[in-house]
Write a protein that binds this DNA or RNA. Structure first.
Length: 566
RNA sequence: CGGGACGUGGCGCAGCUUGGUAGCGCGCAUCGUUCGGGACGAUGAGGUCGCCGGUUCAAAUCCGGCCGUCCCGACCA
């Protein structure tokens, strides 16, 4: 391709309102343009990057036995009702001219499970099916350019097995393949324990790339390598000494006290670690009380995961009053028997605690959890913080921001049961197929690479995903330079290198700056000065070091570097 | 969904408080001089000032409604 005819609309200014580096640079470099909120057009350079990422994924999934499909994006609403996912807020629903419900797929478990009903025998398993297809999600808040969008292409694969051992094998194969895929893209990922959310299933792991533009928080221990999304992370914290127990709870007035801090500062109150925080949630329409130590934050996802709820929310004030008889700020679980009470294990064995009395402006002191509160379930609900102890070693946890670039799930039989995807086992008995699902969003992967590989001049693509591997920059477009450029350009092409010839009639500074903004890994510069001596200039974008190289050696040198880095 | 901000040539912005001629930088076109790190001069093209309504002799500017976009939070398979 010659730059004079290529559509690479570079911009001097950052797009208005953009914050994320990848967003700014992908727009400025002429890779993407926004169509509407959460929807981007890929321009030729952007599409080239995405295609290279797609190719890497395809190779690695084929290598573990994947068979490529292509499923529709428009689905009958009925299958989403059958799987129980019809109510998901992010689901785009629409009706055809007859008024029949349809949905735009936000993943493809339903459709693949439906095809899997054609499997008859355990002898046909295992299967590994995948496709690259557009997903549509009505996101509450699209943001950061390509990082969080409403329409994107995802590689999603689905494993089908007769038993848990088979599934574990395919799960591990994906784990290894994903590690390779991200490594080839130049991304340094950590696989972390994750919540499976409304996807269902038992186990899931997310592949995380550390980045300030990320939306997830990962807790990790440098000493043992423990890594978990804070939605799931556990930690070790010191025990708190109990105060002196009382024979019975004692109600006392606390006028105007509505918060943990206020009660801690109240004469006759209690420090935060000696308080029980009572949170009221509505989970799929049912109220539930979550009890935490006063100074501990609740991690909502842990509550969702435990309840297997598809939707939870804090209760509204009127619901709280109706349920407990008091407003938030005076709530407690003492004597509560009609509502499910879930307590964080940090409260286990605690006595002499203070909590709300379910009467405005009154609290109880001397609460003994085991004696006074009917805890239905003890569940870890606490969100960890940096500096706490690692649950697996003597080390300390750090917490960092990360981009989720891949997610792998063990789904179990949720979808196969919903669709009757069974096979006969060796005893002739029908068994539901055990499924796994595995996803990588292509656009987010492009953005993640851009987040990691950039500097103050622009993008710095790794060779394996660069839109073009080399740019041949002509400092002048006089006849001799143009001829030399054309010659090197066609030789590079013949050598199988992705090369762009910058034959634009622009000043050198403009060309150099554009080349750096777009982020070509290598640049070969030709000008009358060097040509007189039979040399070109060679520079690698990553380190910026340049040197002169004989014209005859250019192609060999570039070829060697590119092939080593692909 | 809660909070905040913004919407004016292709891009980035000023103008709005105090109503009256639509402006700047970049980009674009033509010509000339230049040209190994975002050149200079001259000429020129390009704008329903997000939309609808109201106030007014007169609205980019004041008022109301709506739409759109971004940021923070909530949420997020």
């Amino acid at each position: 391709m010659r730059w004079s005819q290529a559509f690479i609309p570079t911009l001097r200014d950052d797009p208005a309102g953009a914050e994320a580096i990848s967003h700014k640079l992908l727009v400025r470099g002429g890779f993407i343009r926004q169509l509407m909120s959460g929807s981007y057009s890929l321009l030729p350079a952007g599409y080239r990057v995405r295609s290279k990422i797609r190719r890497i994924i395809e190779e690695e999934i084929n290598a573990i036995g994947g068979q490529e499909f292509l499923m529709p994006v428009l689905h009958p609403g009925e299958i989403w009702q059958r799987s129980g996912r019809w109510e998901i807020d992010e689901l785009f629903r629409l009706q055809d001219r007859r008024g029949v419900d349809h949905v735009l797929g936000l993943t493809h478990e339903e459709v693949f499970a439906l095809i899997a009903t054609e499997l008859r025998s355990y002898k046909q398993l295992p299967q590994l099916w995948y496709h690259f297809q557009t997903k549509l999600r009505d996101e509450a808040r699209p943001k950061s350019g390509l990082l969080r969008v409403r329409e994107f292409v995802m590689k999603d694969s689905y494993s089908l097995d007769i038993d848990a051992a088979g599934q574990a094998k395919q799960f591990d194969a994906h784990h290894a393949a994903y590690t390779k895929i991200f490594d080839r893209m130049g991304l340094d990922t950590v696989a972390v324990e994750a919540s499976s959310g409304a996807m269902g299933g038992t186990d899931s792991m997310e592949f995380m790339v550390a980045s300030p533009a990320g939306e997830d928080f990962v807790a990790y221990s440098a000493e043992c390598g423990y890594s978990a999304n804070v939605e799931r992370a556990r930690s070790r914290i010191p025990d708190v000494a109990n105060g002196d127990p009382l024979d019975a709870v004692e109600k006392f007035p606390t006028p105007g006290v509505r918060t943990i801090e206020a009660l801690a500062g109240f004469d006759g109150g209690a420090s935060a670690e000696n308080q029980i925080k009572t949170l009221v949630y509505i989970a799929d329409g049912e109220p539930v009380l979550a009890l935490m130590r006063g100074d501990h934050p609740l991690q909502e996802q842990k509550l969702i995961d435990h309840l297997l709820a598809s939707e939870i929310r804090p209760a509204h004030d009127d619901e709280i009053v109706e349920l407990l008889g008091a407003h938030a700020g005076s709530l407690g679980a003492v004597g509560v028997e009609t509502v499910k009470v879930i307590a964080d294990p940090q409260l286990k064995g605690r006595v002499a605690m203070t909590t709300g009395a379910n009467e405005d402006d009154f609290h109880y002191r001397g609460v003994d959890i085991d004696r006074d509160i009917a805890v239905s379930e003890w569940v870890d609900l606490r969100e960890v913080s940096a500096g706490e102890g690692c649950p697996n070693c003597d080390g300390t946890l750090d917490v960092y921001k990360a981009i989720e670039v891949g997610h792998i799930f063990k789904l179990g039989t949720k979808y196969s049961e919903a669709f009757g995807a069974n096979v006969l086992d060796e005893n002739g008995k029908a068994q539901p197929i055990i499924m796994g699902s595995y996803g990588i969003g292509l656009g987010r992967a492009v953005a993640a690479v851009a987040e990691v590989y950039n500097d103050d001049k622009g993008l710095v693509w790794p060779v394996a995903v660069a839109p073009w591997e080399v740019v041949v920059t002509l400092v002048k477009t006089d006849e001799a330079t143009l001829a030399a450029g054309e010659r090197i350009y066609s030789e590079l092409q013949a050598a199988g290198i992705d090369v762009l010839l910058d034959d634009r009639n622009e000043r050198p500074g403009v060309k150099f700056n554009d080349a750096e903004l777009v982020g070509f890994p290598f640049r070969v510069t030709l000008g009358p000065r060097g040509l007189a001596d039979g040399v070109a200039e060679f520079v690698a974008r990553a380190d910026g070091d340049s040197f002169e190289i004989a014209l005859d050696s250019v192609v060999g040198h570039v070829k060697g570097l590119v092939e080593a880095a692909r």
